[in-house]
Design a protein around this nucleic acid. Sequence first.
DNA 1: GCCAACGTTGGC
DNA 2: GCCAACGTTGGC
Length: 137
Amino acid sequence: MNYWLVKSEPTSWSWDQQVAKGAKGEAWTGVRNHTAKQNLMKMKKGDRAFFYHSNEGKEIVGIVEIVREHYPDPSDPTGKFVCVDLKADKPLKNPVTLNAIKADKRLSEMALLKQSRLSVQPVTADEWKIVSRMGGL
DNA sequence: GCCAACGTTGGC
DNA sequence: GCCAACGTTGGC
């Protein structure tokens, strides 16, 4: 199983909206960046991803599960980009803020810090464990 | 194919 | 609101 991190501005798509979609999940569309696309294409059904609120909050608020692997993004008229379906798995008891991640030396290599603009990022198994623990899971 | 101009993202 | 990072566009 691989681990990921997806980012969204809560004003356009929030964790609460994701939760409201329930077990069926929702398409994660709108990725228009090739690096992010590569990551979407590596996602497998059953993989988990942190759900990060950028801009407002700047914290990891929950965990989502990939329920459908990549397929053409219906919101992309050129047909070049892909999306996956994600469903909310569980919320973090304590959201993990960007500041908390920066403060932990073990997390200094996270893509979130190194490539802050990348909207779909890989997370290592170690990073996953550390952040999950910080989040109270 | 290079590179300057420009737009967008996202932290501060 | 500013600015750094970085991707994209378009002229040459």
